[in-house]
Design a protein around this nucleic acid. Structure first.
Lengths: 145, 145
DNA sequence: TGGCAAGCTCAAGCTAACTTCAGGTCTTCT
DNA sequence: AGAAGACCTGAAGTTAGCTTGAGCTTGCCA
């Protein structure tokens, strides 16, 4: 295969990502690219899968930091095989399960609220201070974490 | 009841929200406050419930704009009754159901991926361009919407 | 009538995840 | 060889949802 090194524009086209997004991921360390003598990025075919994973995981609500952690399960140095990917994919599945569980519990509590008509802090379980205060600090505190 | 008008500090204490957050919500139009002759905000007791709802809905992943739409179902002018709240709460419940459905479908597809070992754009259903391109425009495009 | 905590209004800052822009360099095709 | 188009870097801008700070005014208790 002669075309083993893919320029950024084409990998963008193939994944549907913006060129700028891919550059951003590289800067964040989510992907690594080689460079030509003229300093242009050249990606491997395996990076397409990596980028796909990033898109999927993001779609499921994971932040790039979490995604980075998941991707760290892949072997460094060599191109990951299908078997290498399995634990990563499974880990993502667990993340989905967690999220579904959370929403289910929330739904149950909300049903109680419809029943009792409360929705006030004194009576209702839906809001509990401890949880909210957890993500303190400046900037937006992301919900549903 | 003499204490019907609540200053911002106390409503903050009662809801667990920061004073600054409440001011921000008022500025966004999510809550309305009366003012004293000296220009200080005074809230109604019903606003506590309103703020609770905001917190809950946010927790479930709704943005303030969506929450604003939900709150628009409440009657303007008079204080909402328990019955007034029911459609709003139910609407929130539907939102949760939707989200759960989405995650369930994602999980199913991911299971297929574990089976076939793919996770590439050409073969795998997990990523489909059309969907992603939907949220175009500048700024971050929020996933899982 | 003090005094001081609690409020008020801007304006600017912060995180996440990118995009856009300006000003220049490679590559590739003819 | 020349030109068009793809790339590069670095800095600044964007949305969401608030927080922080500066500088000033109210409100309430002793």
């Amino acid at each position: 295969m002669k075309d083993d090194l893919i320029p950024i524009g084409e990998i963008a086209r193939r994944t549907g990502l913006a060129v700028s997004a891919i550059r951003y991921y590289e800067q964040r360390g989510l992907i690594v690219a080689e460079r030509t003598s003229g300093n242009q990025r050249r990606f491997r075919r395996a990076d397409i899968r990596r980028l796909s994973f990033i898109m999927i995981a993001q779609r499921l609500g994971l932040g790039l930091t979490e995604i980075e952690a998941e991707l760290a399960l892949l072997p460094k140095g060599r191109a990951p095989t299908v078997l290498d990917w399995q634990p990563v994919t499974r880990s993502l599945r667990r993340a989905i399960d967690l999220k579904i569980g959370l929403l289910n519990r929330a739904r149950g509590k909300l049903d109680d609220c419809i029943g009792c008509g409360c929705l006030s802090l004194q009576k209702c379980q839906m809001v509990n201070r401890g949880d909210m205060a957890g993500a303190a600090g400046p900037g937006p505190r992301f919900v549903l974490g």
